[in-house]
């Protein structure tokens, strides 16, 4: 059974009299330890798909089944519980809580899970070490650089050992050098820690590091292999 199964997912908005359909009958399966990138121009529905996958938005129709649970059927409260246990979210703008230290920010998701203080401490320390920020544990977000803030954001996303780590333009606000470091870190999550990673980006460099590359085009999801849409790649393979 796949880790995630998205079936006939449609999302519609109304903007005045106009009806917008960023996602139209989208199907997708994600296996455990997959590394996927979702690319597309602005406004094509990349973030919408990610919001639906993480349960912070509701589809117009269709199903999202994660580990056998159709999350579209969960109430707001149960969806929050589900997110706490299953989703690690890396934001584009870090979105750290400014009044909390790096340590406390990373600890936040663990406060929602049944866990002793000692276990929380151990997990936060491991996460801090994983992003190489053990010496910045007591720093507040304002005392950190953009790259360090994003690393704290990544540590916060992985600390609860979630089913899927999702990233919304995780390098969007960083300079090229810092972005490269963050990408390496995200890649390590998948390769070394075996985490399932789903990244939304419009940056081809970011998209390229993923094993599975998805494109959204007029509400339809297209998976590419070797830089081409999958159906083109398959046709080339057949001719060969």
């Amino acid at each position: 059974m796949p880790l995630v199964e998205i079936r006939n997912l449609t999302k519609e908005f109304s903007k005045g009299d106009e009806k917008i359909t960023p996602l139209k009958e989208v199907d997708l399966t994600i296996e455990e330890k997959d590394f996927l990138s979702l690319m597309g121009a602005s406004g094509t529905g990349k973030s919408t798909l990610m919001n639906l996958l993480t349960g912070i938005d509701r589809p117009t129709s269709g199903q999202i089944i994660v580990n056998g649970t159709d999350i579209t059927q969960l109430s707001r409260g149960r969806l929050a519980d589900w997110r706490a246990a299953n989703i690690g979210y890396i934001f584009q703008t870090h979105n750290l809580i400014p009044v909390l230290t790096a340590y406390e920010n990373i600890e936040l998701p663990l406060l929602l899970l049944p866990m002793s203080a000692a276990e929380r401490r151990k997990r936060v320390e491991i996460a801090l070490e994983a992003v190489d920020l053990s010496d910045r544990a007591d720093h507040y977000p304002r005392q950190l650089s953009g790259g360090q803030e994003q690393r704290v954001g990544i540590a916060r996303a992985i600390v609860a050992n979630p089913t899927i780590v999702v990233g919304d333009e995780p390098t969007g606000n960083l300079d090229a050098r810092t972005a490269e470091q963050i990408l390496e870190l995200v890649e390590r999550l998948n390769v070394e820690l075996g985490m399932t990673v789903f990244v939304v980006t419009h940056d081809p460099k970011v998209g390229a590091i993923a094993a599975r590359r998805l494109h959204l085009d007029e509400g339809r999801l297209i998976e590419s292999v070797d830089g081409h849409p999958a159906f083109v790649h398959d046709a080339v393979q057949r001719r060969a």
């Binding site: 912070i56 409260g77 929050a80 997110r83 706490a84 979105n95 809580i97 929602l112």
Partner: peptide, 15 residues
């Protein structure tokens, strides 16, 4: 408002 949205994204129930 954004901070509360972040907390909810991390899994904090609305209640």
């Amino acid at each position: 408002i954004k901070e509360h949205a972040v907390l909810q994204t991390l899994g904090l129930r609305p209640m």
